[in-house]
Nucleic acid binder design. Sequence first.
DNA 1: AACATCGTGAGAATCGTTCTCATGTCGTCC
DNA 2: GGACGACATGAGAACGATTCTCACGATGTT
Lengths: 135, 135
Amino acid sequence: MTSTDPTPRPAVRPTRQRRAVAAALAGFDDFRSAQEIHDLISRQGESVGLATVYRTLATLADAGEVDMLRNEDGEAIWRSCSDTHHHHLVCRTCGATVEVEGPAVERWTSAIATEHGYGDISHTLEIFGTCPACR
Amino acid sequence: MTSTDPTPRPAVRPTRQRRAVAAALAGFDDFRSAQEIHDLISRQGESVGLATVYRTLATLADAGEVDMLRNEDGEAIWRSCSDTHHHHLVCRTCGATVEVEGPAVERWTSAIATEHGYGDISHTLEIFGTCPACR
DNA sequence: AACATCGTGAGAATCGTTCTCATGTCGTCC
DNA sequence: GGACGACATGAGAACGATTCTCACGATGTT
Ligand SMILES: [Mn+2]
Ligand SMILES: [Mn+2]
Ligand SMILES: [Zn+2]
Ligand SMILES: [Zn+2]
């Protein structure tokens, strides 16, 4: 009783621009803004419109291939990530990022939510600090 | 060996505008944007400039009297809060908010940070869901 | 009352992000 | 390989939240 493909997605075409964004993402470990990523690409000689960078990042984020979070100024920052649920420990100074997991925290959030009658839960959790290299 | 006042703050003057913002904040429990708060004030017959609303909210946030967080669109939203460290369980539909505390989570975040050599830690944690009234 | 300082507001300016739409590219079927 | 419909791109305009400017008002202190 295997169900048929439930989502006949329009199919994402492999374009030069998308490859450029993917390549840029592969080149750093910390979180970068769309504009920084756009600059990185330009500096590598390629040309990709800023709007396309935004569109591509949004697509990748939907697909769960990149994480997007907001810095203290509210700007969206992005980086490629593993495909499992996780959170981040981010250096406030240099941006160095560690992916962290915490089953206990996951359990706690859903317990709290249930306790108050909330359903359909999601959560955001980011830890900021100063990394060993920046102390 | 009591030290002298380390911070001779300029003293915040009690103005009509600041009272209006405080009164507006007292009128709701959920998170609202600066513009919504500005509208609330106007609707109550008073007139306070939008820039002043922003300035007052920022001051109150610095003083720890209001919480500011960002919704999924990155907009800053605000509400008055208790003076102890806490997090929020927010209804995605109506905004109903519950303040929650979790000593275990606090311990976990600092443990994780220490484990990776990070210092001077802070963190953000928000839980979103659908409240009982909205299910 | 006079003065120094702080607060306010209207509108301009910022700036990240999204939208428009004419044009380019991809995949597919002949 | 040419034709075609769908998807993708980019330049610039448009948007929208937030901040800045600066002339003017309010506060509190002597
Ligand atoms: Mn989690
Ligand atoms: Mn906490
Ligand atoms: Zn660092
Ligand atoms: Zn609700």
